[in-house]
Design a protein around this nucleic acid. Structure first.
Lengths: 353, 353
DNA sequence: CCCGCTTCCGGAAGCGCCTCCACGCCGGGC
DNA sequence: GCCCGGCGTGGAGGCGCTTCCGGAAGCGGG
């Protein structure tokens, strides 16, 4: 591995500005003890020379670490790549670098990544994605993060409320509620849910919202089959298969994220089951392709890009010691994949061999 | 910004092992000049203590920098997020950290990011995405990168051949050719192309391939309208609008990437123009949602994840000084968005207000 | 006019690591 | 038996930066 060539040193800047190293450092850091005039001159010179501080030296000397670590389940999942887009956006503006790693939906691996990030002296760690509900690992994660925070590290989480840190939290319960109400109001009574792993808090919350809405509309939870599978496209296919097999009279499937909804749609398409004529389908997140699917997907929009930005913002100005939670808006986006319950609903399932 | 707590120092390890700092350093780095026995003892102690080297100190002292910088146009574009997924995958295995930044499809900004990455002492820089064809900036970029490489920095590019570095290169010309042939063989004679900015080499190559194929099928390039717009979904919409307006007898639109194809499909859908019954549409890349669009998209598959992995691999073991180019496979994926030319093709355009 | 305080600045000590260099030990050749 | 060469090891300098501390001005009041 390479050692990039030497660059401009602070000493060079100092010399050009006719001041000492110490003064130049203070001037650029914007600290007290330098006259306005000198400070400006130094900054001017630094700019002209295109000086960029060596972050390694800076960090080593006890200064700020300019990198933020971002842990996502998987970057090529649109939900996470949109969040990452937001984080990178703000980081760019603040001249920070973003280090991304995958947790791969594995609590142990996530913890390992956190440790790695800490060892690399990241100044901020942002964790996107649900908790996994593994009590042992969760506890250790909590301990490690606490130590990191005690040492001055900043932590923010997105969509997970179990951690002791600043949090950006979509109201998954309310979103699920909106979805449930929407379908109930369209007249559906045979509604099934394609859910991710039950231990993911995102799944649990959305599910709770859906259940509450359906209850308000007179459906008992027992009437609503919930199929748990991977929280990705393939999982959606699997869930749809099971639902069609075990509950052939279903008229609407609520997928708890758009990825699963895409899988559900794929299965339905292959089986020649019309959407929404025979089956309504809804998703959650509103990833950018949701509008281009066949048919376009009814879903709950979450402002992923904003969530990423906000998380970094919170972490950066994390002033008080008490973690803050910043809720995010959400909005039901009704598109073409949901419709009135088919009048011949009792015939539903006929197409399923 | 925080200064993460102090950690175990190499000195601690050395003391525990009863050797000097220098010896411990050599032992852990696996360098010559340490007896097997001592080396093993030191490594054992380091492991037991859970020692992780401080990368800042290491880099500062002239050692390896464990971070790879990845520049993409925009991380929430599926094409790039899949590439990033591959890079991160391999980086994970190698215990490297990946720093991602956006070029935002702006050559100046890209250059700035490269400079920033260099200043941050990234050991590897991977640039994904087309060149912009701005000769001035291009030249300067080349200079900056050359200096970086001279200093030991490793550079790899993905999908851009103009730079003097290891390159992972999809055969865009052949891919374009496959697309052109496919549509020509379906009987289409009125083919239009929705292209990104002409300066992007990706666009130029794919276009050249399409043109060559059509020529072989007896179509003169003059018969093939090419509309240039942004290389994203919105650009596809725009291009489709123009094509429908200026060339109402078009029976097939080749979009030079899937993002634009999605925009084209959206416009067609809104206008009630059947695909492929009235208009065939093809894309390029085969991003993962391409199969779920309405209708599913005929496209040329590029192994994005592999491309990311390969780029990092090349950069890492960049042995010789002569840059290597690694071609990638591609494959025409025929789905539902393309079909035989409508028999009443001469009537095409009737639906356009 | 001198004293003491404030303001601004430079010197210098590290941060944790790598690496050059010098040193001590051993064995083999004369 | 002595010298030379090589291997294994420790000492020390330095990477570029931050920050503590002490010194040099400049100011007002006694």
């Amino acid at each position: 591995m390479p050692k990039p060539g030497p660059g401009l040193r602070l000493l060079d800047v100092a010399r050009h500005a006719g001041v000492s190293l110490a003064t130049a450092s203070r001037a650029l850091a914007g600290r007290e003890g330098v006259s306005q005039e000198v400070a400006n001159r130094v900054r001017q010179v630094a700019d002209d020379l295109g000086y960029v501080a060596n972050p390694f030296a800076r960090t080593l000397a006890g200064g700020a670490s300019p990198t933020v670590g971002l842990i996502v389940h998987q970057i090529d999942d649109p939900y996470f790549s949109e969040i990452a887009g937001g984080v990178i956006q703000l980081a760019d503006e603040r001249r920070l670098l973003v280090q991304i790693c995958h947790s791969g939906r594995d609590p142990g691996h996530e913890l390992r990544q956190i440790r790695h990030l800490i060892a690399q002296r990241a100044g901020v760690i942002i964790i996107a994605g649900s908790g996994f509900g593994d009590p042992g690992v969760e506890a250790e994660t909590r301990t490690v993060l606490a130590g990191y925070q005690r040492g001055g590290g900043r932590v923010a989480v997105i969509g997970r409320h179990a951690l002791d840190a600043d949090a950006v939290l979509p109201d998954n319960v309310a979103g699920g509620h909106a979805l449930g109400s929407h379908l109930a109001e369209l007249g559906h009574r045979r509604i099934a849910v394609a859910a991710g792993a039950a231990v993911l808090n995102t799944v649990a919350d959305r599910l709770a919202g859906v259940a509450a809405a359906l209850r308000r509309h007179g459906l008992s939870p027992d009437d609503v089959p919930v199929v748990h599978a991977d929280f990705v496209r393939e999982g959606g296919r699997l869930a749809a298969d099971r639902i069609l097999r075990d509950h052939p009279d279903t008229t609407a499937i609520i997928a708890l994220n758009d990825a699963m909804a895409m899988g559900v749609l794929a299965t339905l398409r292959e089986r020649g089951i019309g959407v929404p004529s025979r089956m309504s389908v809804a998703g959650f997140d509103d990833v950018s392709v949701a509008a281009d699917l066949a048919p376009s997907l009814t879903t709950v929009r979450l402002p992923m890009t904003d969530m990423g930005r906000t998380a970094l913002e919170l972490a950066l100005k994390s002033a008080g010691s008490r973690p803050r939670r910043r809720p995010t808006g959400h909005r039901l986006i009704v598109r073409d994949s949901t419709g009135l319950v088919p009048s011949g609903a009792r015939l539903a399932g006929e197409g399923v061999e």
